[in-house]
């Protein structure tokens, strides 16, 4: 296989990691909403934790994106 083609395929495979980030962010916001609907008075206090969880979940997906970009541009 051509090296260029293999790089493209590898970068595409590495970007699949973002699917996990999407699932994680969905779970975080979904669970926050269902918790906030049950107990609205406690929701405001947990908002920073929501943002923290969102950023942590998004970051793991972005690690995969960084791998894809390294394959494409650094090699």
């Amino acid at each position: 296989m051509e090296l260029e083609a293999a790089k493209m395929i590898g970068a595409g495979l590495a970007a699949i990691a973002l699917a996990g980030a999407g699932i994680g962010i969905g779970i975080i916001f979904g669970n926050y909403l269902s918790g906030a609907m049950r107990n609205p008075s406690a929701a405001q206090k947990q908002f920073p934790n929501l943002l923290l969880g969102f950023a942590l979940a998004e970051a793991t997906g972005l690690f995969g994106l960084v791998v894809a970009l390294i394959i494409l541009f650094a090699f």
């Binding site: 950023a55 942590l56 998004e58 970051a59 972005l62 690690f63 994106l65 960084v66 970009l69």
Partner: peptide, 16 residues
């Protein structure tokens, strides 16, 4: 590593 790559990757991916 995780602290730095998180910030860098978010910024770079967003701007790209």
């Amino acid at each position: 590593v995780s602290l730095s790559v998180r910030l860098f990757a978010n910024m770079m991916a967003g701007h790209t």
